[in-house]
Amino acid sequence: MNRALLILFSVLSVFSSFCFSQGKFPSKPVTIVVPYPPGGSNDTFARALGRKLTETWGQPILIENKGGAGGSIGAAYLTKQPADGYTLILMSNSFTTNAAIQPNLPFDPVKDFAPITMVARGPMILAVSNKMPAKTIAELIALAKSQPGKLNFGSSGAGSTNQFATELWMTAAGVQMTHVPYKGMNPAVTDLIGGHVDVLFASLPSVYAQTKSGKARALGVTSLVPFAAAPELPALAQNGAPGFEFDNWWGVWAPPGTSAEIISKIRADLQKILATPEMKEIFLREGADSVQMSTADFSRTVSSEIDQWKRVAAKAGIKPD
């Protein structure tokens, strides 16, 4: 009897694998959670990918916005969903900065998520007020060094990704400025234009149009080399901040315990979509490049960045609002 059961289980296992390889997943609608309100890059990317996944899978992709607590509410929700691939989440690198400074999150940011892949990444712009005399990165560094702490820099809030980017750059450039946190990026950009903020690190969609129209001045980008969407701007790493790099990025996760087979299928289908000219154009409009990354590399990126931001936060005294 035991031998017969073993044979039966073996047959069922082979049949199950065969069914999966024949594309039985997904067999019903899939939900992508966006842990922020509608609008913004996370929502834009999720909906663009969702439309293409619907075409690929022949199943509806539902976008569910669960905003609040800096993305933690939506992230916590994912951890409680079945590990069957039918609920995913798209988040940005703010997930790693939040994890670095929030000691009481209702989840483990590494163990409670199954990484699938990074889908896009893009730099920030270093912009200064038109009232600032500095016209180049070198002039800004020289000005900041001549009066430590006198210049200020804005951010979208304490512990935000742009605060982390600025703190990292200040260390690399050997300068010191005073932090002015805002409740969101829009008021920070408004005060940059008004001359109340000297320096602001921000995503391309947040500030590039204002610098192109002359309302503020863009000095450089946070990527290691110039970026295709703003090719006229030099890389900060090549101008007084050797080795400095900061990219915003976006990725997709599944609930913990999701099978390797399902994760592999989702990643493979996402990568095909990300390679299309249409998707590349959508990402570029949002200041990002589509990314081809293995699940293992994405997992390592998440873990290493959390550790890195913990060190930066400890050194700079970064705490959440």
Rank of each mutant, 00 (worst) to 15 (best):
P242H: 06
S264G: 11
A254N: 08
P231F: 09
D269W: 06
L204E: 13
Q271L: 12
L224A: 15
P277A: 08
G243Q: 11
K212I: 08
G240C: 14
N239Y: 00
E261G: 13
Y208G: 01
W253G: 03
Y208C: 03
A228F: 09
G220Q: 01
A218Q: 06
E261I: 09
P231A: 06
F227L: 04
T211D: 10
G257V: 02
L224K: 15
A216I: 07
Q271E: 10
T222G: 04
Q210N: 13
G214W: 12
W249D: 04
E245T: 11
P277R: 05
T258C: 08
V221P: 02
K280I: 10
F283H: 14
G243P: 04
P242I: 09
Q210Y: 10
E245Y: 03
Q271M: 14
D247H: 14
V221A: 02
W253L: 12
A268Q: 07
I282Y: 03
Q271D: 14
K215W: 15
Y208L: 15
I266K: 03
R217E: 10
A241L: 03
S203L: 04
A216K: 04
E232A: 13
V252H: 05
D247W: 11
A228H: 15
I262C: 06
P226D: 04
F227Q: 01
W250Q: 03
G257R: 01
S213I: 11
L274E: 12
K272D: 13
T258A: 09
P231M: 07
K280N: 15
L233K: 03
I263G: 06
